[in-house]
């Protein structure tokens, strides 16, 4: 169940945002790294159908995003950079609403979500309004929500930005555990280097271009860098700033 991005170019008001992106995301925990404004969120919005492709092609296994959007949406779990929860509803109401948008009954949602919420230490907050939750808890709700319909693909756009260390650790460990047990294809976009492990497939985006891709440890060897941070700096910052 791979995601294939072929020759994707995207411009916004004549300004190029993505240039000829080619990459394949295989099952596992794929990391998309890039500075602010690199085009990570734009790429994700193309993958989620929030923006329309201008050039190139995106396929999820055999499904073409321009032709079979609805079929893809049924298999796609997403956590957006900006929170998308309804603040006036409770955690449970938010989750059952999302489940219903995928045709799932409230009973089924509750059955599926109870163990996830327990793992994410949220079960006690099930009937609290989202407005009363802190940012870390809201993120956890969104992580739980994106799994309700048992997706094959997970796209997470800077899901841990702005969270404390404990929340970040809990979320990233939870996602990695899911990937290991369910063989999902995950795209994790971030600019936080400590979230990348050496065995992760790594994609580095800078100024709308995919400047490097491969296994993290292979890229470290290739560029003779000792850490992901050094590798990232060497590839994304102009020589004069190093």
């Amino acid at each position: 169940m791979s995601i294939t991005i072929t020759d994707v170019t995207y411009s916004f008001k004549a300004k190029p945002v993505l240039s000829a992106i080619n990459l394949t995301l295989n099952p596992g925990f794929n990391v998309l790294l890039g500075p602010n404004g690199a085009g990570k969120s734009t790429l994700l919005s193309l993958l989620t159908g929030q923006r329309t492709l201008q050039q190139g092609n995106i396929t999820f296994a055999d499904y073409d995003i321009t032709q079979e959007t609805r079929a893809i949406m049924g298999q796609l779990g997403v956590v957006f950079q900006q929170t998308t929860l309804d603040l006036d509803l409770t955690v449970l109401q938010n989750l059952t609403y999302f489940g219903a948008l995928h045709g799932l009954s409230a009973a089924l949602v509750l059955e599926r979500i109870t163990p996830v919420l327990t793992q994410l230490a949220l079960i006690e907050r099930l009937h609290d309004r989202v407005r009363s939750l802190n940012e870390g808890h809201r993120r956890r709700v969104e992580i739980a929500r994106c799994m309700i319909h048992l997706p094959q693909y997970l796209l997470l756009d800077e899901a841990t930005v702005g969270l404390d260390v404990d929340s970040r650790k809990l979320i990233i460990e939870h996602i990695r555990a899911i990937v290991a047990s369910q063989k999902l294809t995950v795209l994790w976009t971030t600019h936080l280097m400590d979230e990348v492990l050496e065995q992760d497939p790594l994609f580095i985006l800078n100024q709308g271009k995919l400047i490097e891709q491969g296994l993290c440890q292979s890229l470290l060897l290739k560029h003779q860098q000792s850490s992901v941070f050094d590798l990232y700096r060497a590839l994304t910052q102009p020589q004069g700033l190093l």
């Binding site: 957006f80 998308t84 948008l101 045709g103």
Partner: peptide, 14 residues
């Protein structure tokens, strides 16, 4: 504006 429209768009229902 708040982003919850994105969730509606992620639905496989027309």
């Amino acid at each position: 504006e708040m982003g919850s429209m994105k969730i509606l768009l992620m639905s496989p229902i027309p």
